[in-house]
């Protein structure tokens, strides 16, 4: 792989990562959101694969395979199952911030991410480091989804979006934080999603809905 092809592929995959994050913010249909999330998992896999091919590192290939299995396969499957258990098609009916404002906020967050990660980029101006702001943007958009969306499933997606961003950030800055760390983090995420899934089901069984603001009455 020549250097130009590597840089172009890297930019392409990072672009896909950002695009899917924004798409999640744009769409309201939960099944579409889960599908887009799976797509982002694939983009993340592609990113890791590009890095692996460039570094010629077997370990990175293993990580790529793991990311594919977990983020494009297992986690979307679990989310789909949660949605299917609810029966009728679900929508993120009334987000706390409407879609247009959300997209504008995403633009602001992108600026913020670029401004913040400038010192990191200048520290080691490699092609991979140039892509750091994208990863930070994905983290911030994930947090934004977590804050503004009411439905439990979209909250979980927001959480996973943050985690995707963090994984991408780790890979871009250090080209692999080690297999053990990666496996540990993945296991953590999987457990968190399992717990959240059970929680979402319980909330729906108890309140008939998964709008988290219904839990307001539970405080002391």
């Amino acid at each position: 792989m020549t250097e130009t092809v590597y840089v172009q592929l890297l930019d392409l995959t990072c672009g896909a990562l950002l695009l899917t994050a924004v798409l999640i913010l744009w769409r309201r249909d939960l099944s579409v959101i889960v599908r887009v999330f799976a797509l982002q998992g694939a983009a993340l896999t592609a990113l890791v694969a590009v890095l692996a091919a460039h570094e010629r590192s077997g370990e990175l290939w293993v990580i790529a395979a793991g990311v594919l299995a977990l983020r494009a396969g297992l986690l979307p499957y679990l989310l789909r199952r949660t949605l299917a258990a609810a029966g009728e098609p679900q929508r993120e009916a009334r987000p706390l911030v409407n879609v247009a404002a959300s997209l504008l906020a995403a633009a602001v967050l992108t600026f913020l991410a670029h401004a913040v990660s400038r010192p990191l980029v200048t520290l080691a101006p490699s092609p991979a480091a140039q892509a750091i702001p994208i990863a930070v943007t994905v983290v911030l958009i994930g947090f934004f989804v977590l804050v503004t969306r009411r439905h439990a499933v979209s909250q979980v997606v927001g959480f996973l979006l943050m985690d995707n961003g963090i994984t991408a950030l780790g890979l871009l800055t250090t080209t692999g934080v080690g297999l053990v760390v990666e496996v540990g983090v993945s296991l953590d995420v999987l457990l968190a999603v399992l717990v959240l899934q059970i929680l979402a089901v319980r909330i729906r069984e108890t309140f008939g809905d998964t709008d988290l603001d219904d839990l307001r009455e539970l405080r002391d």
Partner: peptide, 26 residues
């Protein structure tokens, strides 16, 4: 107030403010 979103929002705004401060002061 008991709203989960509000609690998450505190974290989000604080993070954004901290990042903004970092971006401005550097």
């Amino acid at each position: 107030t008991g709203s989960v979103h509000r609690y998450l929002g505190y974290g989000f705004y604080t993070l954004c403010a901290a990042l903004l401060l970092l971006a401005v002061t550097r």
